[in-house]
Simulated scan of single mutants.
Amino acid sequence: MELAHYSDFAVRLVNTEEPARNKDSLTSVDAVRALFGASQQMARRVTDGDVTRFRNVRGRLRSVFEAADGGDEVLAVDLLNSLLMEFPVSPQVSGHETLAEDGRPDWHIHLAEHPSNAS
């Protein structure tokens, strides 16, 4: 997955709730798995506890989007940085996808499933 996939995932996560209509489709392990896609390794590891965690993160991501939409870039960045501090990511270069025309791997960035600063 390239980085654009992760931002798409964030949008899909936020859109599992429609506060104005009092609707929430993120209510089960299967709903969380559907966000990832059934074939993804992460989807297979989802547990009941993850539903609550994703709902919590969803609310915080919504605040990031609302701040950005309202033109408050500083608040949006502060909120996003807070999430990144709590959930550190580790970029990793990968070349397992289709080969480029010249036969070289199609290099791209993934986010590793382990934090780079794990102790």
Rank of each mutant, 00 (worst) to 15 (best):
E73T: 13
L13W: 06
D69T: 02
T47P: 02
R45V: 07
S90H: 07
V57Y: 08
S39Y: 00
L79V: 02
R12Q: 07
H96V: 10
A118Q: 09
Q41E: 09
G103P: 10
V93R: 14
L13Y: 04
Q40K: 13
F65E: 02
S116W: 06
A100P: 04
D24P: 12
P88D: 11
V29K: 14
D106Q: 15
E2F: 02
D69K: 08
D50Q: 02
R44A: 10
S94K: 13
D106G: 15
I109A: 04
R58Y: 10
F36N: 12
H114K: 08
V29L: 05
R104C: 05
P115G: 08
S25G: 06
S90A: 03
V93A: 08
P115I: 09
L84Q: 15
S82C: 14
L13H: 08
D72W: 14
F87D: 04
F9I: 05
L79E: 00
P88H: 13
N117K: 05
A34H: 06
N22R: 13
A31R: 13
L13C: 08
H110Y: 07
G103F: 05
S90W: 01
S94D: 15
D24C: 14
N81F: 01
Q40M: 04
A112C: 01
H108T: 11
A100L: 10
M85Y: 12
T47F: 01
Q92L: 11
S63P: 06
D72V: 09
H114T: 13
V77A: 12
L99E: 06
D50K: 06
T47M: 03
D72L: 12
T52L: 04
A20P: 06
G95A: 05
G71P: 07
L26Q: 02
S82E: 15
Y6W: 00
D24H: 14
T98P: 07
T16Q: 10
V93W: 11
F87V: 10
A10S: 05
A20S: 11
L61F: 13
E17F: 04
A31N: 15
R45K: 15
V29A: 03
G49Y: 07
V51D: 04
T47L: 08
R62I: 08
S82F: 13
V11C: 00
V64E: 00
G95F: 03
E17A: 14
S116V: 02
I109M: 09
F87N: 12
V51Q: 03
P91R: 08
L75E: 09
S94I: 05
A20Y: 09
H110L: 08
R45E: 07
E17R: 13
N22T: 01
R62E: 11
F54G: 09
D102V: 02
L75W: 01
